[in-house]
Computed example of a mutant assay.
Amino acid sequence: MRRIEFDRTGGPDVLTLVERDTPAPGPGELLVRITAAGVNYFDVNQREGAFPVELPHAVGGEGTGTVTAVGEGVHQHAPGDRVAWLGLSGSYADQAIVPAASAVAVPDAITGETAVAIMLQGVTAHYLATSTWPVRPGQTALVHAAAGGVGQLLTQIVKLRGGRVVATVSTEEKAAIARANGADHVIDYSTTDFADATLELLGGRGVDVVYDGVGRSTFAGGLRVLRTRGMLVVYGLSSGPVPPFDLHELNANGSLSVTGPNPGDYLRSPEEFGGRVKDLFTWVGAGDLTVNIGARYPLAEAARAHDDLENRRTTGKLLLIP
């Protein structure tokens, strides 16, 4: 089997395609021939050393494919079944061992690429808009990086729940993508102060919630744009970690809240994970949620995929194809 590993932290160049023996599935496990693996910023964070891992490390936390063999005690999946998963190291590969309990069946109506595209980004958008801050009809959300993988899905889910979306993007091309996903207002933060522009759009009221996957460069403006008792949800740090700040600012500026959701706390059981995935599959099947595959790369070009992601040359979901 072939897979991508790194044996030291650093830039995209540390990613290496290696040959490993194909393992046999043990009790409760599946051997899966992978058809697509998702590329996520979390993979970049691990590669850079922000989230330490044991080295050498097999990269990739989500994938989809076809079961080729099952281990003892597996009854819910069989060879030939299509499955997808989240949270498994080693998904940048052409084959992988997947715990049967972690694999979800992919319905016939859902393509493998769509299934893997919503494993992390779709599930993230789901819990952000339904649990972290459950959007209610008439509320307004500011969605940063709205043309990215999470941003596109999050915009659509907020709209499905009856909310309004102020989207921020960095180019006119990305602005068109945000509008296509239903954003009510789009702000180019590369040329405009997004906080000033948002407050002007809303007559000074502010937004109910800010969904921020950027971090350092947008945090202060996110606090400024919230209405009284609003919440800033920092779910990603693509521009770097948020610097320390005085908690009194939250009190003084309208009893604001800040949270940093951890995916594990919103996916605490297979049932919770499966319920969120079921909602997403249902919305996709009904035509209420559209998944945009931004780019596909051969497995051997994982480094190029990381470089493109880090330098914001992409929109939508990035996939590696073995």
Rank of each mutant, 00 (worst) to 15 (best):
P261C: 12
Q156D: 05
S170A: 10
G254S: 06
A220D: 11
R312W: 02
P137F: 13
L237D: 03
N311I: 09
I157C: 04
V234T: 12
E19G: 13
L280Y: 11
P52L: 10
I118N: 04
E301Y: 13
N253D: 14
G162R: 15
G49E: 13
S170P: 01
V234R: 03
R82Q: 14
G275T: 11
G206K: 05
P99R: 00
V59C: 08
T124I: 13
L153P: 03
T140Y: 15
E54G: 08
M1D: 03
A101T: 14
G80R: 04
T64E: 13
L232Y: 06
R313T: 07
T9I: 02
S131L: 11
I34W: 12
E200F: 11
S102H: 08
T198K: 02
L142T: 13
L256A: 15
N40C: 03
G138M: 06
P261Y: 00
L199I: 11
P79Q: 08
V106C: 06
D94L: 03
H57E: 09
R3Y: 08
G112T: 12
L153F: 03
L55G: 09
A84Q: 10
P107L: 01
A84S: 07
D21S: 11
V186E: 01
P137T: 03
E271T: 11
A96N: 06
P263E: 09
I118F: 07
V225C: 15
V284N: 12
K278L: 06
A58D: 12
P243R: 06
V106M: 08
G71H: 06
P298R: 08
Q121T: 10
I157L: 03
V233P: 01
D184R: 10
G203M: 03
R161Q: 14
V258T: 10
T9P: 02
G230E: 07
R3F: 09
M1P: 02
E72G: 15
G73M: 05
S255D: 02
G148L: 07
T259A: 13
V233G: 00
A125V: 07
T68A: 09
T218H: 11
L15K: 03
T315I: 04
G28W: 00
Y297P: 01
A125S: 15
G287A: 14
T140W: 15
V150C: 11
G11R: 04
G148T: 08
V104S: 14
A167G: 04
D94S: 05
G63V: 07
S190K: 14
F281D: 01
D188R: 04
P322T: 07
A286W: 01
D81P: 00
R224K: 11
P52T: 11
G287Q: 08
R3G: 11
G90Q: 15
F194W: 10
V32K: 06
P263R: 15
T114V: 12
V67L: 13
V106P: 04
D7P: 05
V150L: 04
E113G: 14
G112A: 02
L142S: 00
A100F: 13
V158Q: 11
T155D: 01
L202R: 05
D212L: 02
L201C: 05
F273D: 01
R3H: 12
A145Y: 06
Q46K: 12
